[in-house]
Amino acid sequence: MTQQIIHIHREPVELYKILKFTGMADSGGGAKNVIADGQVKVNGAVELQKRKKIMSGDSIEFAGVKYTVKLEDSAP
């Protein structure tokens, strides 16, 4: 399984928004659909909550890729 890092600048971020802004889904509606279809795992478990709060250190699995969420320091 491929692994990638998703950088966020604030937390928490809702799951469907992460799928949308990273390009895993083509739109917010598309992101909500794949979540509702049980295609997304958070921390190893199928997640059906579209607005699940994602924090730094969480993992997301979708389409054979595992993503680790990392909070970026926004200070200059």
Rank of each mutant, 00 (worst) to 15 (best):
L71E: 10
V34I: 15
G38P: 15
G23P: 14
G57M: 05
F62R: 00
P12H: 01
K41A: 03
N43S: 09
E11A: 10
G30M: 13
Y67T: 01
A31E: 08
T2K: 09
V69Q: 05
R51A: 10
Y67H: 12
R51C: 11
G44A: 01
M1T: 04
D37N: 07
D58S: 05
M1F: 02
K52C: 12
G30F: 09
V46Y: 01
G64K: 10
L48T: 06
G44T: 00
T68V: 07
M1S: 11
F62V: 00
D37E: 14
I60V: 10
Q4S: 07
A63C: 11
V69N: 02
D37I: 01
M1A: 06
P12F: 03
S74E: 11
Q49D: 11
K53S: 12
K41Q: 12
V13L: 07
F62I: 00
V65I: 10
L48A: 09
L15D: 09
K50E: 05
D73P: 04
K32S: 07
T2N: 11
D26N: 08
I8R: 07
E61H: 05
A31I: 09
R10A: 03
E47L: 03
S59L: 13
I18F: 14
K50S: 12
P12A: 09
D73Q: 11
I54G: 06
V46E: 01
E72D: 14
I35Y: 13
S56M: 12
K41F: 00
L71K: 14
G23H: 06
G23F: 02
M1P: 03
D26E: 14
T68R: 00
P12W: 05
G38Y: 02
M24Q: 07
N43W: 08
V13H: 14
A36T: 02
I18R: 08
K50I: 05
A63H: 07
Q3M: 04
H9Y: 05
N43T: 01
K20W: 15
G44Q: 02
I8E: 14
A36C: 06
V34G: 02
K20T: 12
S27P: 02
P12V: 07
I6F: 03
I5E: 12
E47R: 03
V69P: 08
I5K: 05
Y16C: 13
A75D: 14
H9D: 06
V69W: 00
I6N: 04
H9F: 10
S59T: 01
E14A: 15
G57A: 05
L48Y: 15
M24H: 09
G57I: 04
G29H: 11
S27M: 10
S56R: 02
M55I: 06
I60N: 15
G44M: 10
Q49V: 02
A36F: 10
G38F: 03
A25K: 01
K70Q: 09
M24G: 09
S56T: 15
V65K: 08
K41I: 00
M55F: 08
D58F: 03
L19F: 14
K66R: 08
L19P: 13
V40L: 11
